[in-house]
Simulated scan of single mutants.
Amino acid sequence: MDLFNNDPNQNLLPYGGVVRYFGKIFDYQKANHFFERMMKTVEWKNDEAVIFGKRIVTKRKVAWYGDFPFEYTYSNKTKTALPWTQELLELKAIIETQTGETFNSCLLNLYHDGSEGMAWHSDGEKDLKKDGTIASLSFGATRRFSFKHKETKETISINLEHGSLLIMTGKTQTNWLHRLPPTKLVKNHRINLTFRTIILDSTV
């Protein structure tokens, strides 16, 4: 099922979670400004994963920022958060105002073109706040983003536009997988930011 609804009050999932799409929250000029600044100021590095004991280095680049030097482990690799840049702090404040949530960290992905994507997965790492909100902010090329229910296999897809915001909350990570499928149609860069909440040891 393809969705084109930009009403942030509407849940895009039929059951088992909550996903809301705000559409474009920045005009074209402002979105371009943030895109260009992040291309220059973010400390991008090729992502790494350990799969079946083998170290894999991806073409896709990533960066991890936060309030503190949080350690975040996924795909059997641990990353330590860098201090916020000025642009990321500005975006964090805007997203918190838009969503009414607070976040203490952000994982960024840089996709150079449509050949780079993300396989089916859920963000259920133990470091993350359980059932917490994840705010996904997109800049650059429009890409299709898909959800698949873990049991029924029902799928839902939406196009994430330049300067747009999507949030996932509630039981979404428990019941649904999501992915960014590769495509030959996209030739341009895309930056995705996912603002998250890492649980501090003192609060567990």
Rank of each mutant, 00 (worst) to 15 (best):
N6T: 14
N6R: 10
D7H: 09
Q10K: 15
L12Y: 08
L13H: 00
L13D: 08
P14K: 06
P14Q: 05
Y15N: 14
Y15L: 13
Y15K: 15
Y15D: 15
V19W: 00
G23D: 03
I25G: 05
F26Y: 11
D27V: 06
K30D: 09
A31P: 03
A31T: 10
H33S: 10
F34A: 01
F35N: 02
F35P: 00
E36V: 00
E36L: 07
R37D: 03
E43F: 05
E43P: 00
W44R: 07
K45M: 08
N46R: 14
D47F: 00
E48Q: 14
V50N: 12
F52Y: 13
F52N: 15
F52T: 13
R55M: 13
I56H: 14
K59E: 09
R60W: 06
Y65V: 15
Y65K: 03
D67K: 10
P69Q: 12
F70M: 07
E71G: 13
K79T: 13
P83Q: 10
Q86E: 12
Q86K: 08
E87S: 14
L88Q: 04
L89V: 01
L89C: 13
E90Y: 04
E90F: 11
K92L: 12
K92N: 08
A93S: 07
A93M: 07
I94S: 01
T97Y: 10
Q98R: 13
T99I: 03
G100Y: 04
E101W: 01
T102P: 01
S105A: 11
C106L: 08
L107T: 00
L108W: 02
L110D: 00
Y111I: 08
H112Q: 13
G114K: 02
G114Y: 01
M118Y: 02
A119I: 03
W120A: 11
H121I: 05
D123S: 09
G124L: 05
E125F: 13
K126E: 15
K126A: 10
D127S: 14
D127M: 12
L128W: 03
D131P: 00
G132T: 02
T133A: 10
I134Q: 04
I134V: 14
S136P: 07
S138T: 13
S138I: 14
G140W: 00
G140M: 07
A141H: 03
A141L: 04
T142Q: 06
T142E: 08
R144A: 05
F147Q: 04
K150A: 07
E151N: 14
T152W: 08
K153H: 08
T155C: 11
I156N: 05
S157F: 09
I158G: 02
N159Q: 11
L160N: 09
E161G: 04
H162E: 06
L166C: 05
L166W: 00
L166P: 02
I167P: 02
T169D: 12
K171I: 00
K171W: 01
T174L: 10
N175M: 10
N175G: 01
W176M: 04
L177W: 15
P182A: 07
T183L: 12
L185H: 14
K187M: 13
N188F: 08
H189V: 09
H189C: 03
N192I: 06
L193V: 07
R196M: 08
R196E: 11
T197W: 01
T197E: 06
T197K: 13
T197L: 02
I199P: 01
D201K: 12
D201C: 01
S202N: 09
T203I: 15
V204L: 10
V204E: 11
